[in-house]
Amino acid sequence: MTYTKSPVIELEAVGKRYGDAHVLRELDLRLPAGVHALLGPNGAGKTTIVNILTTLIRHDSGTVRVLGLDPATEAHAIRPRISVTGQFAAVDEVLTSHENLVMMGRLLGLSARAARARAQELLARFDLEEAGGRPVSTYSGGMKRRLDLAVSLIWPPEVLFLDEPTTGLDTRSRRVLWDQIRELAREGTTVFLTTQYLEEADELAEQIAVLDHGRIVAQGSAAHLKSLVGAEVLRVSNESGDVVRELPTDGSAGALARASAEVAATDPRLRVELHRPTLDDAFLKLTGHAATPERDDEQGAGDDRDATPARELSREFNGTGASR
């Protein structure tokens, strides 16, 4: 496990547009080794960033470096050192998971014997041994995602890109994937994952970058992002449960006593509750809209570009939802 000073991923003033739609504007991001989450709502540009970093598309302007290399011109040097698991499981449905792994292993230049051994190892690691002999078309979504991640690890990468690895998955599959991602991080792999789930970013990432409308609006640890919202507040609600006031406190007993005395003086029937800021609050404050998508359409989550008009809608929708 080596920690180099130079960033593993570097984006400087990166712009990308499709026609009139500016997907990324003047985007700056500098990430060292470790586990990083890119957090943002649908259409924020997450997939576009992953595609640029993984040599799939070219950026229009700015500088991009992955492992010190330019994905636009040195893709051949980057590809052997990275792996990507996209939003759609890139596995062959007709083949079994064992056959999928062997095929990809052979494509990567492993001998037949080494590819078989590696396949067996990965099936065990991803809890797919029992299903290993069945065609992938009979698998659940979670199993396909696990296989997809297993394929990404045939040749252990220096940087692993995960584009919304658990979108649309059940809790159990999500936990299995999280465990595997943590395991990889322990082994020293740099993980760059995008997610629209705050919980996922909170659970996995050391560093979180918040992306909104093609710009990084905040960056730091989960604790740091939460602290941007401020300290604990005393939330005051009336009998019907509506929040009527929020009093900032520093969390000390004295401050709480003073604040609740002040509340009691106005109306002793009011209810108080100590509220710690969550990543949700941070996101809301940073972007002006909620992070968790109101309408979680699993298929539509696929293409950031197509989501542009819908994004505006959902922004409005979330905006009204949040203002109460």
């Binding site: 993984t54 040599t55 799939l56 051949h76 990507v84 996209g86 939003q87 759609f88 890139a90 494509l107």
Partner: peptide, 17 residues
């Protein structure tokens, strides 16, 4: 139209494979 081509393109393998 699925992820297969993108996966191959991010691997050190000619995508015309």
């Amino acid at each position: 139209t699925t992820g297969t081509i993108n996966r191959l393109r991010t691997m050190p393998v000619p995508s015309a494979t």
